[in-house]
Simulated scan of single mutants.
Amino acid sequence: MSITLAVGTTVVALSPDLYWSDENNWAPVEQTAQRTITGALIVSAATRQGGRPITLEPSDDESGWMTRAVIDQLRNWAAVAGQQMVLTLRGQDRTVIFRHHDGAGIEAHPVVHYSDVVDGDFYLATVRLMEI
């Protein structure tokens, strides 16, 4: 199944081999618990309104390759503060932004290093997004 990111009419196809590595590490409920000076327990809970992390990464060095042209487009979008995008993953559209507070929104390195890079060179990349 295809994975795409879109801003307006510009759509970038990501490798379908990327997997959502933190899909099961998020809960829709936020909760805090604290004790008062008397020892009573106060629990506050609410449904989260957004912020679900979506980290797309290759499972190994043999999968999830993307061209430099795709990486460059992602970096251009990541350079725009608060850039909203539409992620289509498993047939579902999600409005996302880059998760800059967790490091680089996109990390990429070449599969094979060439001194004279071209748009068709392949890269391994991790894309850190957040649903809003």
Rank of each mutant, 00 (worst) to 15 (best):
T47M: 05
D119K: 07
G91N: 03
D121H: 15
P53T: 01
V12I: 15
L74N: 05
P53D: 05
S21Y: 02
Q84N: 12
A125Q: 02
L56Y: 03
R68F: 13
G39L: 06
E62N: 14
I37A: 14
E62L: 11
P28M: 10
R90C: 00
R52E: 11
I54E: 01
W77Y: 06
V111T: 03
Y19M: 08
W65Q: 12
V96P: 01
L14Q: 11
S115W: 08
V70H: 03
V7R: 12
Q31W: 00
W26R: 05
F122K: 15
D121E: 15
T4Y: 05
M1Y: 06
H100D: 14
S115R: 10
A45P: 00
N76T: 15
T36G: 15
V70Y: 02
G82F: 03
M66Y: 07
D93S: 09
T38V: 04
D119L: 12
G103Y: 07
L14H: 09
S44K: 10
P28G: 02
W65D: 09
L74I: 13
W77S: 00
R35F: 13
S59L: 07
V29G: 02
V117T: 10
Q84F: 04
D72C: 02
I54V: 15
I42Y: 01
T95Y: 05
G103M: 06
I3A: 01
G64V: 06
R128P: 05
E131K: 00
Q83A: 14
A125N: 01
G105I: 14
V11S: 07
V70T: 14
P28S: 08
N24Y: 13
V96M: 01
V112P: 00
G103N: 08
G39Y: 11
R68Y: 11
N24R: 11
L87E: 06
Q92H: 01
D102K: 09
A27K: 08
V117N: 07
V111F: 04
R48L: 12
D102Q: 15
A108Y: 05
G50H: 08
A46Q: 10
V70A: 12
Q84S: 15
V86Q: 06
I42T: 13
D61I: 14
N76K: 12
T88E: 04
Q84T: 14
E62G: 14
D116W: 06
Q31D: 00
T4R: 13
L87S: 09
R99M: 08
T67Y: 07
V111A: 06
S2E: 09
A81K: 13
L18V: 06
S115Q: 09
A69K: 09
T9I: 08
E131S: 07
N25S: 12
I132P: 00
D93Y: 00
W26D: 09
G39C: 10
A27Q: 10
E23S: 10
D22Q: 11
